[in-house]
């Protein structure tokens, strides 16, 4: 088992953080008076994408470098779109978007690329 670089570990923890904040935003989007849960599904989509993104930064991640960067961009884009839709509070949306941009930078970093293409495969 290889040692993950610090930047990859940061990518993992930022993914978890983004998912947790999105989870809180999803819970807060629930309206008890009407029991309306439609918006919560959109928040849950952001949670799933960020948890999946975090998983790609582990030693068990099975996809290539390009897919990791694509997933980071997709998760960030969905977070922005869901915020625009009004399915989560704008401040949560801004924080998650910032985390998403950090994830894109971490994912596109050459050290992350080298770890995914070579070091991750060494067991």
């Amino acid at each position: 088992m290889t040692v993950r670089p610090k930047i990859v570990k940061a990518g993992f923890w930022f993914g978890i953080l983004g998912a947790l904040i999105a989870g809180i935003a999803t819970i807060m989007a629930f309206v008890p008076e009407t029991a309306e849960a439609a918006n919560m599904w959109l928040g849950a989509l952001v949670v799933v994408l960020f948890f999946a993104l975090a998983g790609l930064f582990t030693n068990d991640g099975s996809v290539g470098w390009g897919v990791v960067v694509f997933m980071a961009a997709l998760a960030t884009g969905v977070a922005v779109a869901v915020t625009m839709f009004g399915a989560m509070e704008i401040w949560f949306g801004i924080i998650i978007t910032v985390i998403g941009v950090i994830e894109i930078v971490i994912a596109a970093n050459s050290m992350t690329g080298r770890w995914i293409k070579a070091d991750r495969l060494v067991r």
Partner: peptide
């Protein structure tokens, strides 16, 4: 990939808007 990420982001936001 940074420029590719920007395109993906903008396309998703485009659909969302």
């Amino acid at each position: 990939m940074i420029f590719g990420s920007l395109t993906v982001l903008l396309l998703v936001v485009w659909i969302g808007s």
